[in-house]
Design a protein around this nucleic acid. Structure first.
Lengths: 199, 199
DNA sequence: CGCGACGTTGATTTGCCTCAACGATTGTGG
DNA sequence: CCACAATCGTTGAGGCAAATCAACGTCGCG
């Protein structure tokens, strides 16, 4: 395998959505800084202002909200080619409603709000890309919300492992429970009950 | 009060977010068609392709998902200055995951995907506006999702009537229950219990 | 007036939580 | 290299919020 520049994956990602000339590619590469995040380290923290938007090159992270009682609720897991950020905080300067933490060693490309704004001015067609990305993200969350409202924890679990069959190898069970919105004990019991049906 | 053009409210809405010249305003006015929707009529239907994105001039609507058992789950109520649409269906041509229905006589400005695409080409700065609108919508849904995960139905109810004190006059109780993700019976009991505490 | 839409109340059930205890596995410092 | 702690998953007993099913009251409207 050819030794690649860390930015290549991001450029590929953009090129699959819009055409870019050499100069625009140059500007994008200059704007995004590679950053290595050790396992369990945080990319940004709930309560602070999120100054980082990150594109995952390799590794896994979770984005989650901690409620008043200290319980974590995982909004999503981020893998290769996913974005990590608190949109409200990054774009509008509000306090972050969530944190992001590496579940294993993580390589990301990061940008801060000022650099992203400059990049939008220099490469306006990125406005369109990010509009479309945000729309996609919104529709995914809408579907997740509807599933949460209409289905049981079992429905959510079955749908999760159908969409991400390898998820149970990638993240521990108590994190999956947190994503599903239930306790680890409940997930354990649910799986036991599911297996018991296969006779 | 001066008799206004139906488009003025939309132009005001855009102007509060970006500057537009006379010609751009003209193009926008031409792209959005006024439409009157009678109480209980639908703007678009779950399962079909949503060809309409609507901006509410006056009236109230609900946007909701119907699950397999026929239960409705209200994603949001739309009032003056809100957008109504199924983003996934309108933008990506998928089957709509939700329906929109007028709760009372409704006046909207509508656009279809083709016209919106043309408008984006002629007025590229709208890309930016709609990116920001979508981001705002996403952050609102994220907060709602976190509240649903971490809080009880009572938490959700109290937050709803705090944010929209007039909501109980505008929509019937069983619709509020649907928004909260509970049954009308449960909401009735919950309110009874809340009032009982005021002694 | 009579019917349908809406809200309330009661009895019962259920899915998930809470708290507690206990294995299994992993990793780490002496 | 072993001992011990920490992490993670499992199991049990009991509790609670909301669902379910059913019945009934009230209001507005054709």
């Amino acid at each position: 395998m050819i030794l690649e520049n860390v930015h290549d994956e991001l450029i590929r990602y953009f090129l699959s959505r819009v055409s870019l000339d050499e100069y625009e590619i140059h500007l994008i590469k200059k704007a995004y800084e590679p950053k290595f995040v050790k396992k369990k380290a945080f990319i940004f923290n709930q309560g602070e202002i999120c100054k980082t938007e990150a594109f995952v090159i390799d590794g896994t992270a979770k984005v989650f909200y901690s409620d008043e009682r200290g319980n974590e609720h995982i909004l999503y897991f981020a893998f290769k080619d996913w974005w990590i950020g608190d949109i409200a905080s990054f774009n509008f300067g509000e306090q972050a409603n969530m944190s992001a933490q590496a579940l294993e060693d993580l390589l990301v490309l990061t940008i801060n709000p000022e650099r992203k704004e400059e990049l939008f001015i220099k490469v306006p067609k990125l406005e369109r890309i990010f509009r479309i990305i945000t729309q996609r993200t919104l529709t995914v969350l809408q579907k997740r919300f509807f599933l949460t409202m209409s289905g049981s924890a079992k429905d959510r679990y079955l749908q999760l492992i159908e969409r991400y069959p390898k998820i149970e190898q990638l993240v521990p069970q108590y994190q999956i429970a947190s994503y599903l919105g239930i306790l680890p004990e409940s997930l354990s019991r649910m799986k036991k009950q599911l297996y018991a049906q296969h006779f």
